[in-house]
Write a protein that binds this DNA or RNA. Structure first.
Lengths: 347, 347
DNA sequence: TTGTAGGCGTTATCAT
DNA sequence: ATGATAACGCCTACAA
């Protein structure tokens, strides 16, 4: 472990007897460098173990080959897949990823965004983040490219990648209706989020169309978290005339609801059906087996990164939103609301 | 969205009528700057919206305030908690985090490590990563501080943060023994990992001490993944004289095993008990309710980052390994191996 | 207490 | 085809 001094391009120049700029040209593949010279340069660079400093390069080129990614919380199963999608293309594009957890906290988000700008990220991907408040708007409008994912602004036009908040959800409601449910509860996401509002809207429309109970009490205002699911569980199971099926706007939510329902001695799906939204990888486990609406998170992440790269390379006006389809995955938490019965397993 | 030009320290100097270096001194809180001058500088900096370029600073100071974090896969529930722990202290230390997924692939790990070095990270945290092969060793020995987590080298002395692979595990085995299990199966982790080897060793010792079946067939060589758990499930449930309790070296493993067991129509824990290791957040769900050995992942991540910061500030010889305790969390997947019975719930 | 000048390691421009 | 030189934006001796 000899603490060798860092070898710079200067060292390569010296060792190869060439000018610094020639070495740079050779290394960055300029076509007017003599083949022989290039060979020599490559060789000595390799021999000395030279690696270009990304920092110096970033300063000079005003391009850091780094993108920032904002998520609520890595430790939340539904965040991570998005990140994977982003990383897939980041690697391909020789970019690295600065990942920040914001915990849905606006102040924290602002801080993180500032840090990202300080680092001169070439762009950033905001997954389910705040995007309306003046301070955040000011940051966004600074000129650095960005793409919003899963939450967009109604007041502003931004590049956006999201999921269809109609089709899959409507399908789920029809599924519940077809099973015979007439009282279907809905757990909303945080209503400052566009996706949450869109989902709620779809729920209202479709449940009205199918003549499901329109009672206000069937709607619980929540967030996309497990804890919020617990609260929803307490709310719905405590009702006099409780829903026979609960539709949650996220899987974490659904799991929270199930937790309480099971603790209350309710059987799923015999006593109450549950439908999630997201399809986190664990939803498919035999012991959970959650009927849910699938989001293509990794694909969304990749699409967002792809779009971001395009904007980084060539700034352009905001294009059409990219909306990925969703679909219902029927598993074991939904069944007919027959008292004391229904099939125990959806498969 | 006026694409304003970036404001540099020069602009602040000009606007405040002071010299560039004075501004720099004022901003970086040198104590020999007149209070009045500092006020002026702060004021104009704020007015112009000046933010120091982290890139330029990194180049000049040879310190990027960035640390690299290598994990197997963010989308794996057990990776994310570590990351959270690292981030907790990174933020406090005004560092940002470059996160890389290696998928346990050595080639990929090498690539990522090189990128990290190119970016001049101040240090890096390697969570369950390769640390023995010559090429990786060469990278590690380049002089940049690093801390290994959950996997260490037997041949080399490195800074290390890990979990106690004896106590919690031994406790689990005693638990199984106390319930009456005599045939306890064990699913190992990847044996190139030190933690996996340590766990296997503990299993062998403790199961010998308690006179559990010492049949070779009780040990399945796996990895820390869900898929590997599936394989283990197929292996164990297919045996003539199968174990009455299976101890997995990770929760993902355990879930995979449970998946197959349930598909085979086995009831858990009546027909077969299962114990995991990790305590991922979903393990506590009513519908999973996995008895498991808890790892303090977030704490480990934080401890590793803390140690790394110390090394960055002042390089020093490798210290004592930091080993965090583990403990058994008894939930519902373990019970006595009484045919057709046992209590259905561990609580 | 403030100002001047040099350099961190690149790439880009312009001669040669 | 190659080479000298000037930035990029900041920090830090050292000089005033």
């Amino acid at each position: 472990m000899v603490e060798r001094k860092k070898v710079t391009i200067k060292d390569v120049a010296k060792a190869s007897g060439l000018a610094l700029s020639t070495v740079s040209n050779a290394l960055s593949g300029k076509n007017y460098v003599k083949e022989e010279t290039r060979k020599l340069v490559d060789e000595t660079a390799r021999k000395l173990g030279y690696r270009a400093s990304a920092v110096a390069r970033a300063l000079r080129m005003q391009r850091s080959f780094t993108i920032g990614v904002l998520i609520a919380d890595v430790a939340n199963p539904s965040s991570a897949d998005f990140v994977r999608g982003v990383e897939d293309v980041a690697i391909r594009e020789k970019c690295t990823m600065l990942l920040c957890n914001t915990d849905e906290d606006e102040e924290r988000q602002i801080l993180q965004m500032q840090t990202l700008y300080d680092r001169q990220v070439d762009g950033m991907v905001l997954i389910s983040q705040h995007c309306e408040s003046p301070r955040i708007r000011a940051l966004l409008d600074g000129g650095t490219p960005y793409v919003l994912v899963q939450r967009r602004s109604s007041k502003w036009k931004d590049d956006y990648v999201g999921s269809d908040n109609q089709e899959g959800l409507a399908e789920a409601i029809r599924h519940a209706h077809a099973l015979g449910h007439r009282r279907v509860g809905f757990v909303t996401g945080p209503l400052e989020s566009s996706s949450a509002r869109e989902r709620l809207e779809t729920f209202k429309q479709e449940s009205a169309r199918l003549k499901l109970s329109q009672s206000k009490s069937m709607i619980f205002e929540g967030r996309y978290t497990f804890d919020s699911g617990l609260a929803a569980g307490k709310y719905f199971t405590g009702m006099k005339n409780r829903p026979t099926c609960v539709l949650a706007s996220s899987d974490m939510n659904a799991l929270g609801f199930m937790q309480v329902a099971l603790e209350e001695g309710l059987r799923i799906p015999q006593d109450v059906s549950v439908i999630g939204l997201d399809d986190i990888s664990l939803a498919g486990l035999k012991s959970i087996n959650l009927t849910t609406i699938q989001l293509q998170k990794r694909d969304m992440g990749a699409a967002a990164a792809e779009l971001l790269m395009k904007r980084i390379r060539k700034p352009a006006k905001v294009g059409k939103p990219i909306i990925l389809p969703t679909r219902l995955i029927i598993r074991g938490t939904t069944a007919s609301p027959v008292a004391g019965g229904g099939k125990p397993d959806g498969n």
